[in-house]
Amino acid sequence: MKKTLLVLALAFSAQAYAVQPATANTVIDFESLAHDQEIAYLDAGYSHIEDGFSVSTLATNFGFSVWGSASPFFTGSTSLINDSDSGLTRLSQIGGGLFALKSIDLAAMFPGLGEEATTVTFTGLKSDSSRVTQSFSVAASGVQTFSFGSEFTQLSSVTWSNDAYYTQFDNINVAAVPEPETYALFLAGLGLLALARRRRSL
């Protein structure tokens, strides 16, 4: 009986531990799309999958583009650009899991050309079908990191669109949210471990 309890406890704990890394922050940095050209090529497709997340454009006329490192508009890090006028970009987790959105880097598409600051509004769809929004003013030059409020969690998807000017986006900091049964599994494992230790001490 003692051995059975110990085996069960170890099994529960191992399975709970296996899903724990999903709660860690993930930074989607688009470095797999890096190139050394001067132009922003248009064959980056309509969706990009990285670290278990999908970034897709809902437009059908143009997809995403990426400035090459030889471009004067390159920010020093590979960024994605939605090439459709007022194009809607959507972020979601592969498989439909919930996640939290922590921060994102934004920059003008043509930094340094005297464009005015533009506003980018993010809309998050939560698991209970409610919505949260947050807007950021992006300066005409340089990269800015914007942090989201604590309400940007339990999200099934987040969308944002180009405003008056296009923007580059990069380093999307997200964290998968464990399903409730994951917590239950973890607690069950801890409980069985405690019970097994207590029985061994008797």
Rank of each mutant, 00 (worst) to 15 (best):
E31M: 11
T121C: 04
T75L: 08
A117I: 01
S54L: 14
A196W: 06
M109I: 13
S71Q: 04
I28H: 11
K2G: 12
A184N: 07
Q168I: 00
I39G: 09
Y46K: 11
N82A: 12
K102A: 14
V120R: 02
F152P: 03
A107V: 06
Y46S: 12
N173G: 10
G76K: 09
S137W: 02
T121G: 00
R199E: 15
S86P: 00
Q37G: 15
Y41S: 12
Y165S: 11
A34N: 13
F169T: 01
S32C: 03
A11M: 15
S129G: 01
E181S: 15
P21D: 08
A196N: 10
G191A: 11
A11D: 05
N61R: 15
V7G: 02
S54A: 14
R200V: 07
F136K: 00
G45K: 02
Y165H: 11
V7E: 01
T4F: 14
A11L: 15
V132Q: 06
I39E: 09
A9R: 06
F12P: 01
S141N: 01
V158R: 05
L185R: 07
L91H: 07
T167M: 02
D51A: 15
H35T: 03
Q154C: 06
T26C: 14
A196C: 12
N61W: 14
E38A: 15
E115K: 05
T121Q: 02
N82W: 03
S65I: 00
A194E: 05
L10P: 09
E31R: 11
S47T: 08
S127H: 12
N173I: 03
T121V: 04
L6N: 05
T121S: 08
K102N: 15
S92A: 14
A100Y: 10
S54F: 08
G114N: 09
R131W: 08
T78M: 09
L98A: 14
F30V: 00
P178W: 07
D128A: 01
K2E: 13
A34M: 12
V174D: 11
D163F: 06
K126P: 10
F186V: 00
T119F: 13
S13K: 07
L192C: 14
L98R: 12
D170N: 14
S130F: 02
M1S: 14
A184K: 09
E179P: 07
L125G: 04
S141D: 10
Y17D: 00
S69M: 06
V174G: 08
G97I: 02
G149V: 01
T145Q: 12
A188M: 14
A18N: 08
F152A: 10
S71E: 08
L125Q: 07
L10T: 13
A9G: 15
